[in-house]
Design a protein around this nucleic acid. Structure first.
Length: 283
DNA sequence: GGCCAGGCCTCGC
DNA sequence: GCGAGGCATGGC
């Protein structure tokens, strides 16, 4: 177990923010997830303290970076234009959301799957792919402050090599639909070495965007999501149907990202979360 | 059962 | 360069 304190960390909100598809809220104090080939449970202890079901070594090696814990979100919140009423409300509502630094390959495939589907449906498809081609994970013995894992079987997201030889029939069986061909093409891109996580990581924003959008089945929205949610390119501002609605409702059709040259993507995530979880339910 | 979902590709202009 | 049509399937 590893315990840390942070007043800008809300794992329930992160789980509900739609940027990752393998989080599960067990109850308001316990959140579990699978990432980087591991099962992790988070226990909310109160007073901004959190326990993770991992060693201090894994925290330093994996989770500290994954949860973007070295970024100052207080500074991000303080930079919001006070005259921007909508964004100000969104940031208050979404306080505690952070932009994850997810695995590149997993994010590429997950966001290819995500296009033109609802988040619950994406989750189902990603889970099926993981059970089909991932590896069974060991779940650590969990004692208080943790609770029982909600399932008895967890599978890692399949690595590039795990996807070798995957067939259209398998992709149909997980419900990938017409995105199956896109996944096959992505597997080929990465298996052949044409694309590698290292190449993507080393590319500047413009080059990276160009590489990603040249992939079959990856357009501007998915490319921006990959850049934001896997590569911490926080200037990127993905526009999906939800953000598009927000821009039309509150910003006359377009959001001026130039005010947030380094953090527009974080603002985007606050807006997305606010609109999906609050505004529509009230109106 | 109908409708919409964290879009993208292809085609026609 | 740009708009329209088509697309597999799941969840509500």
């Amino acid at each position: 177990m590893y315990i840390f304190t942070n007043s800008f960390f809300d794992p329930v909100k992160i789980a509900g923010s739609g940027q990752a598809f393998r989080f599960k809220v067990i109850d308001n104090e316990h959140i579990e997830l699978v990432a980087h080939g591991r099962y992790l449970q988070i226990a909310v202890l109160g007073d901004d303290r959190f326990a993770l079901s991992c060693t201090e070594e894994d925290f330093k090696d994996i989770w500290e970076d994954y949860f973007d814990l070295n970024r100052d979100y207080g500074k991000v919140e303080a930079s919001v234009d006070p005259d921007d009423r909508y964004l100000s409300a969104a940031v208050r509502y979404g306080h505690g959301i952070r932009i994850l630094r997810q695995d590149i390959w997993e994010t590429v495939i997950s966001y290819i799957i995500s296009q033109r589907r609802s988040i619950p449906s994406i989750t189902t498809c990603v889970e099926r792919l993981s059970s089909l081609r991932g590896h069974k994970l060991s779940v650590p013995a969990l004692e208080p402050p943790f609770v029982h894992a909600s399932s008895d079987e967890y599978y890692s997201f399949p690595a590039v090599e795990d996807m070798a030889g995957i067939t259209p029939e398998e992709l149909a069986s997980i419900g990938a639909g017409y995105r199956g061909a896109y996944i096959l093409s992505a597997v080929d891109d990465f298996r052949s070495g044409k694309l590698t996580p290292e190449l993507l990581r080393a590319s500047d924003d413009d080059r990276l965007y160009e590489i990603l959008t040249s992939m079959f089945g990856v357009g501007k929205k998915v490319a921006n999501c990959i850049m934001l949610f896997a590569l911490a390119r926080t200037s990127r501002f993905p526009i999906d149907v939800w953000i598009d609605r927000i821009l039309n409702k509150y910003y006359g059709g377009a959001f001026d990202t130039s005010r947030y040259p380094d953090t527009a993507g974080i603002m985007q995530q606050y807006m997305f979360y606010y609109e999906r979880n609050d505004s529509l339910h009230i109106t």
